Amino acid sequence: MHVSMAPDMNPAADGLLQIDLDAVVANYEAIVRQAAPAQVGGVVKADAYGLGAREISHALMAAGCRHFFVAHLLEAVELKSSLAPECFVYVLNGLAPGTEPLCAKLGAVPVLNSLDQLTRWAALAMSQRSQLPAVIQVDSGMSRLGLPANEIAVLLKQPHRLDWIKLVLIMSHLACADDPDAPSNASQEAAFLQVAEQFPHVPRSLDNSAGAFLRKPDHHDLVRPGIALFGGAPQFAHPNMMRPVVSLEAKIVQVREIPAGARVGYGLDFTAFQSSRIATIGIGYGDGWLRHLGRCGGAFIAGIRVPIAGRVSMDSITLDVSHVPEKHLQPGAPVELIGPHQTIDDVAADANTISYEILTRLGRRFHRRYLPAANRPTPLGGRA
């Protein structure tokens, strides 16, 4: 996917962030095929990893997705009313004390991560004299969210705790699925199944983006991809089969010639060892471009990689463009930060982080352009 600064871009913006909704749908459909006969939901927390939860969710909904996962109740409040009534919105972090009535009124489904959360949700249901839907999350070895073994034991001994709760899903989360050879994948699956089998008629969900591509006989009832929908590599050990979704370009603000020995940027920690040409672009860490990339990152101009020269500033980055033909270096000319020459995984590798962080940091000062999804047949449904 290639982007060029275009006439429809807001001229006041110094960057263009393009999101290809057709690629999102294509990635969703690829996961549907991979995980069949399980259904596939969409993780759209953190504003769909920074790309726009409403726009992403609407494209997925048109493609047949009916299960959407956010982290916080506030995200559910912002999303739920824009989705079709038959769609489910799950709140992964569960509910803070006192927020249960809002969640119930909204029609969102809490993921209950502790006996305390379960008790409070059941109390509200009992007060309303009506069962309320919920998901139980099991801690299968990640020691993060989910009922630990001792609380599961209590729940199994006291099943009346669930009398006012309609369990729509039992789930857990894989810690190392991006490494197919990690022994924890099998141990977590076994621990999850040991609990899930105590709830024989409740649909199950374990696999995230990476889990959907693990070689195993069963992906259960519902798969919960996030980063793979947005073009990130689900497993680092294998080539990325997802279509790229995001492109990011900046504009050249200024170009200058500097002599050998000249120093650049805050701290003056870049020194030109020969006469050089330096281009400044109007994007910085205030737009989410990691400051750490000042030591190791780069960009592309006319297909030529240009290294960052000096530190990433809040609103600007300086690039060594000495090897780029001058015709490509006029003010306003495009500079590729994410695109065909540099993926989100490439940027993440340069920054010693993961593609999730690259996407979720992208700021609001870019002009955003959404490429529409093509008309596609709705994928076949699954079991959940």
Rank of each mutant, 00 (worst) to 15 (best):
H238M: 12
C176I: 11
H323R: 12
W289Q: 09
V91K: 08
S275H: 09
G363T: 13
S140T: 03
I344R: 02
E249V: 13
S184E: 15
V77P: 06
V3N: 11
S247C: 10
A191T: 07
M126P: 07
P183N: 00
D22H: 15
P110Y: 03
H238W: 14
N93H: 14
V168Y: 14
P203N: 08
M5D: 03
I278W: 00
M5C: 10
R361E: 04
N208V: 13
S130A: 15
T360R: 15
R144T: 02
L248D: 07
A333V: 00
P217W: 02
G286K: 05
G94P: 07
A260H: 01
A123H: 14
G107L: 07
I281S: 08
R364F: 12
L206M: 05
L102S: 09
N208T: 15
G267Y: 06
V135E: 08
D20C: 12
A351P: 04
A125D: 07
T119R: 13
G303Q: 03
I338W: 00
V324P: 01
L162D: 13
A38E: 05
M61H: 06
A250G: 11
V111F: 07
R54F: 12
M9W: 10
R291V: 15
E100M: 06
S57A: 15
A30G: 12
S57G: 05
Q34I: 06
G363R: 11
R305G: 03
P110S: 00
D350R: 14
A302I: 00
I283A: 10
A76Q: 00
N375T: 13
D181C: 13
D181P: 03
A175C: 07
I317P: 00
V154F: 14
A186Y: 05
C176M: 14
G64Q: 06
Q198A: 14
A196C: 03
G363E: 13
A84V: 08
E257C: 09
L206W: 05
M61L: 11
D346P: 03
A59E: 11
A13L: 06
S355T: 10
R243V: 07
E257W: 01
M242K: 12
Q194E: 11
N185M: 09
D116A: 14
W289L: 15
Q254W: 05
Q274M: 09
A182T: 04
A374S: 12
A104D: 11
G265S: 01
K166F: 13
G294T: 00
K216S: 04
I258D: 04
N27L: 04
S130P: 08
G15V: 02
R291P: 06
C296W: 05
E197P: 05
V195Y: 01
Q194N: 09
A149M: 08
P259H: 08
A96W: 08
A272T: 06
V44T: 10
A123F: 10
N240A: 06
Q274T: 15
V324K: 00
I258Q: 07
L106H: 01
P340Y: 11
G303T: 03
R311M: 12
L92R: 11
I308Y: 06
D22K: 15
E75S: 08
Y28R: 01
G288Y: 10
M241R: 15
D181F: 09
H323A: 13
H323Y: 00
T280N: 02
A186M: 09
E357I: 09
L268F: 04
